[in-house]
Computed example of a mutant assay.
Amino acid sequence: MSKLLYSVTMSADGFIAGPGGDMSWLVPHLGPNPLADDLVGRIGALLVGHRTFRGDDPNEGTEKEGAFEGAWQGPQIVLTHHIPDTPVPGVEFAGNLPDAVAAAKAAAGGKYVNVLGADVARQCLEAGVLDEVLTMVAPVFLGDGVRLFEHPGGTNVRLDRLSVGHAPHAVNIWYRVPG
């Protein structure tokens, strides 16, 4: 059965995008990461938030455009309240989280569903359907932007560390979300 994995590169101060969703900060911190490279083949589908789907790709217009610097190709399920009138090849749109999760798991074929987008990841966590979190921490402070996880008023979410590893441009920390 497919697991939901929130994998993301974040700054050392906990931001996954800069102000306004800017992703240009990420480019100097991309590079060889054996864990991320291996993960690409273990992903069967993407579950993507609307802002991430419509957002800023620092590699737009290059051969590295898309998820995992263009290395991943496959089905994408976009969770949105704004389903477009015109179909997008390879993309399915869902108007609510249960339908989006069900469609992504079906499309993943037993592989990981990779969650992209802080808000959709938060929704998955709150619904109890997020299984794992992989943070690739880049050596940079952004100071502002989109946080890895935000819950107004605060909350404690316990995570069990599965592994910690190093790559030339990041520290990889993989967690399991306890049931």
Rank of each mutant, 00 (worst) to 15 (best):
L4N: 02
L4D: 00
S7N: 13
V8N: 09
A12G: 11
D13T: 07
D13V: 01
G14F: 01
F15D: 12
F15A: 10
A17I: 07
G18D: 14
G21V: 04
G21R: 05
D22H: 04
M23S: 12
S24C: 02
P28G: 10
P28Y: 12
P28C: 10
H29M: 10
G31N: 13
P32H: 15
N33M: 06
N33Q: 08
A36R: 14
R42D: 03
G44R: 07
A45L: 02
L47W: 03
V48I: 14
V48E: 07
R51I: 09
R51K: 14
R51C: 04
T52N: 02
F53Q: 03
F53G: 02
R54A: 12
G55W: 00
D56T: 07
D57P: 05
N59A: 13
N59M: 15
E60S: 12
E60K: 14
G61F: 10
T62D: 05
T62P: 06
A67V: 13
F68W: 15
G70M: 10
A71C: 06
A71S: 13
Q73G: 05
Q76D: 01
I77E: 03
L79H: 07
L79K: 12
H81G: 13
H81T: 14
I83S: 01
P84D: 06
T86Q: 09
T86H: 04
P87M: 07
V88L: 04
P89F: 02
E92W: 03
F93P: 07
A94E: 08
P98L: 05
P98C: 13
P98V: 11
D99E: 13
A100P: 01
A100F: 05
A100M: 07
A100T: 04
V101Q: 05
A102M: 05
A103M: 14
A104Y: 00
K105G: 00
A106N: 12
A108L: 04
A108M: 06
A108P: 06
A108S: 10
G109F: 01
G110K: 11
G110C: 10
K111Y: 07
Y112F: 15
N114Q: 10
N114R: 01
N114G: 00
L116W: 09
A118W: 09
D119M: 10
D119R: 15
V120M: 08
Q123V: 00
Q123E: 09
A127P: 12
G128C: 08
L130T: 08
D131I: 06
E132M: 06
V133A: 10
V133Q: 09
V133M: 14
L134E: 05
L134S: 13
M136V: 03
A138S: 14
F141M: 14
G143D: 01
G145P: 07
G145S: 05
V146A: 09
V146W: 00
F149V: 08
E150C: 04
H151F: 08
P152D: 13
G153H: 04
T155F: 00
N156W: 13
V157N: 10
L159P: 00
L159R: 04
D160S: 12
R161M: 11
R161G: 01
R161A: 09
L162M: 12
L162S: 04
V164D: 00
G165Q: 05
G165I: 02
H166P: 00
H166Q: 13
H166F: 11
A167H: 02
A167C: 06
A167E: 11
P168Y: 05
H169K: 15
H169Y: 10
I173V: 14
W174L: 14
Y175F: 15
R176I: 04
R176W: 05
P178V: 02
P178Y: 03
P178F: 01
G179L: 07
